[in-house]
Simulated scan of single mutants.
Amino acid sequence: MAKIEVNGLELDYELIGDENAPPLVLTPGGRYPRDTAGVPELGQLLADGGYRVLLWDRPGCGASDIAFTAPSESVMNCEALVGLVQALGLRDIRVVGGSAGSRISLMAAARMPENVRKIAIWWISGGPVGLAGLAWFYCGDQIAAASKGGMEAVVQLPSWAEQIARNPRIRQILLAQDPDAYIDTMQRWGKAFAYSDESPVPGLGEADFARLAMPIMVLRSGKSDMAHTRRTSEWVHELLPNSTMVEPPWGDQEWNYVSTFPIDTANRRGRFERWPLLAPMLLDFLKD
């Protein structure tokens, strides 16, 4: 476990596995920290398979700082990942991630394609309703709280409780925001999730997909998954120059099933707790 400053933010991270092994970045979804059930377990399996695995807390997640100057939360996170990779001197990396982690992985790789060897992604958020849900999940309750009780109400939101507990600076950063400016930022960040017929992934355009010419494995989303629609995964696959579409190691109802799991890091429960099932197929794909 360590901290490093990137783009003015203190980021919390951990590297596991042989320090001479090829580097691999694993990024979870939601605003969940890197120690969320299933994430370090998958990371350890990948490390055991021969990689130096970077686990990290994105800005606003876990013990890392946050800022509100980026055009969107996704841009803030992907630029933080690019900066973190550079700061740690990681070269010729593999990048893997699920849900928000898939979006951040693709966006970051599009900014440093010369340094990314392979990518594997699953649970790609998309679809009109799925993306509208993200806008509310990440920004809607913030706007509602700030409009009713200013930043004092924002820091009381359950969505910030864990981050503030892990990094008390988050509370001070939030309280330092002007409520009206914060609402404007959340409106802008929410708009960044807007569905478009031009791209399946907000924040990625045609030129970005064209730059992602490295081998990429896309796991097909479940037909029943309304948060990460099947069409989104297929559309991403169609736009990538060198993509392989594969079936995941679980059934169609997986997202609906794991969404019922309690979020309980201490007892290793949560939406990502079955991610270790991905290890064999990831290791098979990522090898040279």
Rank of each mutant, 00 (worst) to 15 (best):
D208W: 00
A165T: 10
W160C: 02
I173P: 00
A153K: 02
V155C: 06
D184R: 12
L174D: 07
V201L: 01
D197F: 06
Y182C: 10
R166N: 13
R166E: 14
E162M: 10
Q187Y: 10
A153S: 10
S159T: 14
P168W: 01
I170T: 15
G205M: 02
Y182H: 14
R171F: 11
R166M: 14
R169K: 13
A207G: 08
P158W: 03
F193Q: 09
A161N: 06
V155P: 03
Q177M: 14
G203N: 01
D180Q: 15
L174P: 10
S196Y: 05
D184W: 00
Q156F: 01
E162K: 09
Q172G: 14
R166S: 08
Q177C: 15
P200L: 03
P179H: 05
S196V: 01
Q172E: 14
E206R: 12
F209G: 11
L175H: 03
S159V: 13
P200R: 02
V201T: 01
Q172L: 08
M151W: 03
P168I: 04
K191W: 05
A165K: 11
D180M: 04
G190V: 06
F193A: 11
D180C: 04
D178H: 03
A192S: 15
A161F: 04
V155M: 03
N167L: 12
M151A: 11
Q156K: 12
V201E: 00
A176L: 02
L175P: 04
R171G: 05
Q187H: 14
R171A: 15
P202L: 05
M186S: 09
L204K: 00
G203Q: 01
P202R: 00
A207R: 13
I164E: 11
Q177K: 15
A210V: 00
L175T: 04
N167E: 04
A181N: 09
R188S: 10
L157Y: 09
W160Y: 13
Q172A: 12
R188I: 06
G205A: 05
Y195R: 06
D197E: 15
Y182N: 06
Y195K: 13
P179D: 10
R188Q: 13
W160S: 02
A210H: 01
G203R: 02
T185S: 02
R171C: 14
L157D: 08
E152R: 13
G190L: 06
V154I: 05
I164A: 13
I170W: 05
L157G: 09
L175S: 12
G190M: 14
E198K: 15
A192H: 14
I173K: 12
Q177P: 12
P202D: 04
F209Q: 02
E206V: 14
Y182G: 07
P200V: 06
I170L: 11
S159I: 15
F193E: 12
D178C: 02
R169Q: 14
I183A: 07
Q172M: 11
E152P: 06
A176N: 03
P179F: 06
S199M: 03
T185V: 07
M186N: 11
T185E: 06
P168K: 01
G203F: 00
A161K: 12
Y182R: 00
Y182Q: 04
D184N: 07
D184F: 01
I164M: 08
Y195H: 15
V155F: 05
R169E: 15
L174M: 11
A181M: 03
I164Q: 07
A210K: 09
R169D: 14
W160T: 04
T185L: 09
R169H: 09
P202F: 10
